[in-house]
Design a protein around this nucleic acid. Structure first.
Lengths: 191, 191
DNA sequence: TTTCAAACGGACCGCCGGTCCGTTTCCTGT
DNA sequence: ACAGGAAACGGACCGGCGGTCCGTTTGAAA
């Protein structure tokens, strides 16, 4: 990769991250990003394909670090299986809260596009593995979806910003619910 | 309200509903709707304000009927408190599944706009009331959010269309999880 | 029938995502 | 050191869309 290309790539990514953080999930246009990064519009599209690609790239930069953090917490010490699930979910929660506007922007593009992004799939698979170690008989695949749904960025924003729930309260609720899911019986559910 | 105005209103609503159902949550433009309804663009905007207003109006038409249905199920017979929650959630699930593209379109606009729409608030309040009758000590306000998050349209679509889970399986999961939430202890949750 | 407020409709505007292509910049081979 | 060419650049340009405006039409009340 050519030197100027790399420099521009970094500049665009940094600028996009900043604009999203400052002005919200849809408070930026591609022209904005290009101009603020001191780069031509064509350069942005050449590198990232389209708007969704840019958002995806910004997310990729941060998601790798959070994933490493989660994995470190999981490996460190001999955490019992149930606590591993809790740790994973709690870490995910913190990560989403820390980057709310970015994650909201990301959810919008990933929901819209056909391709299921690799990131979400990884998270889901990891959680499935963790859950099935605690409740071998349960529908781990569904439960993982259910827990992830709890920490969707727009859901969290809705609770916190619109309904005024405190972040700590929501966090406690999420963790409590995760515990309930893991410890409760698995009723086959009629009607 | 003038006769022609009423006729046009109905035509636009029906056309919008059809287009959303046929072409997905963002497969229509305001020009499309106006043309397909045999009406001028200005007429659509005059009546519904903007794109979001149109979607909201389409939703309002159907949400009233589902709400009535849910209320009927709740009143009919002497359903025990816990089953009332299950019934409510299950009915909501069925409603969302039945109108997936419409509800997805709606979630996008309602998430974006500042005003928390009356509809979602109503649903939430009703669920809070039902839950607090079953678990007086729990954080019913949060739990209601958590259960509603389970039946968010884009989450359901993600599970069903992208991850290939059967609708019946997801429905069973949702109900099972709701039961778990209601019957489980309310751990105060550390970490 | 007159009258006028209300509704209509489509031309028009500005913005935005995405493309195109002439120009510039960096690397490589000699 | 230099020449050549591939790769990157950048901004003019395009089509579509949400939303507005205003001259025209329509329906109902007096």
């Amino acid at each position: 990769m050519r030197k100027d290309a790399e420099r521009n790539r970094a500049a665009v990514l940094a600028t996009a991250a900043r604009l999203i953080a400052e002005r919200g999930p849809d408070g930026f246009s591609m022209d904005d990003v290009a101009a603020a990064a001191g780069v031509g519009k064509g350069t942005v599209f050449r590198r990232f394909g389209d708007r969704d690609g840019l958002v995806q790239a910004v997310v990729d930069e941060t998601s790798e670090s959070w994933r490493a953090e989660a994995e470190a917490l999981l490996e460190a010490g001999d955490v019992p299986p149930e606590e591993r699930v809790i740790t994973f979910v709690a870490t995910l929660f913190d990560h989403v809260i820390a980057a709310l506007p970015l994650v909201i922007a990301f959810e919008r593009v990933s929901t819209r596009s056909i391709a299921c992004d690799a990131d979400a799939k990884l998270t889901h698979q990891r959680l499935v593995a963790l859950i099935s170690q605690v409740k071998p008989g349960a529908d781990a695949e569904y439960l993982a979806h259910a827990l992830i749904a709890q920490v969707r960025a727009d859901t969290l924003r809705h609770m916190v910003e619109r309904c005024g729930l405190d972040v700590a309260r929501v966090r406690a609720g999420v963790i409590s619910l995760a515990r309930g899911v893991l410890s409760g019986d698995l009723a086959p559910a009629g009607s």
